[in-house]
Nucleic acid binder design. Structure first.
Length: 231
DNA sequence: ACATCTCCTGGGGAACACGA
DNA sequence: TCGTGTTCCCCAGGAGATGT
């Protein structure tokens, strides 16, 4: 996918109220950008780090700037979680994920049950495959980790993916590692043990786990290659 | 006192209702 | 058959209310 252009470069001043961040652009102008990542973002909030923001033309938006990427060391990290789904959507359309090719229909935001939506539903005649995507931004010593804080929603999604399998469908948990300085993916048991154990249990019960490395070359973000993982 | 529930944040996308 | 508006849920966790 291509990020909305032009992208504006700046430095992070502070992130606050979960959805907002103050950023000093290269012009010296200080703007407040929307941060479409309400997670804890551990390790990504180094004040003074280089960031890239895009600007929406939607007059109804309260904060026209969207925070897209932050540079940590030598790697860009994808902040805007909406991009993750766009990257995977594009990869599905282009058959770039071998485990998920051969489906005739790709439906985003697929409803499951009364209160759940999975990121994608892939269909081929009567075959159904539900796919949930997660953006992985936390890393410690070349190991990509998820989640970056306790996530009851994430655990709920895993339990519902197991239900998908019980009902005779295919269920896939797909992690996209949105930084380029990792060689392995693991669940962050020291952060959320319940999630970590549920992920392992989900795999044992037929939920397929995929981990892919993203290639981040602003303004382009694509799926690169499968990353090794240990559950 | 502690646990659980609900609401709230801003933007985005899908489904649905409705009027032209 | 369009376009527009509304509702719901997604992202995740904090705050406050409610229940045990």
């Amino acid at each position: 996918m291509i990020l909305p252009e032009p992208l504006f470069s700046g430095k992070l001043i502070q992130r606050y109220k979960r959805f907002l961040a103050d950023i000093e652009l290269e012009t010296g102008e200080i703007i407040t950008a929307h941060c479409a990542n309400p997670g804890s973002m551990i390790g990504l909030l180094q004040n003074g780090s280089q960031v890239l923001v895009s600007k929406s033309q939607d007059p109804k938006r309260k904060f026209p700037f969207s925070w897209e990427l932050i540079k940590i060391g030598e790697t860009w990290v994808v902040v805007n979680t909406a991009n993750t789904n766009r990257v995977i959507h594009e990869a599905l359309l282009k058959n770039q994920i071998p485990e998920l090719i051969g489906y005739s229909e790709i439906k985003p935001e697929a409803v499951w049950g009364d209160h759940t939506r999975f990121d994608f539903l892939l269909r081929k005649e009567s075959d159904q495959c539900f796919v949930e995507v997660k953006n992985v931004t936390l890393a410690e010593n070349i190991i990509a980790l998820f989640p970056d804080s306790i996530t009851q929603r994430g655990t709920k999604h895993l339990n519902e993916l197991m239900e998908v399998v019980r009902k005779g469908h295919r269920a896939v948990m797909c992690f996209l590692v949105s930084r380029e300085d990792c060689q392995l993916f693991k669940p962050a048991a020291h952060i959320d043990l319940v999630y970590s154990e549920t992920l392992r249990k989900a795999q044992e019960n037929g939920v397929e786990v995929l981990v892919y490395q993203a290639k981040i070359s602003p303004p382009q973000i694509t799926v690169d290659y499968p990353l090794k993982f240990e559950l």
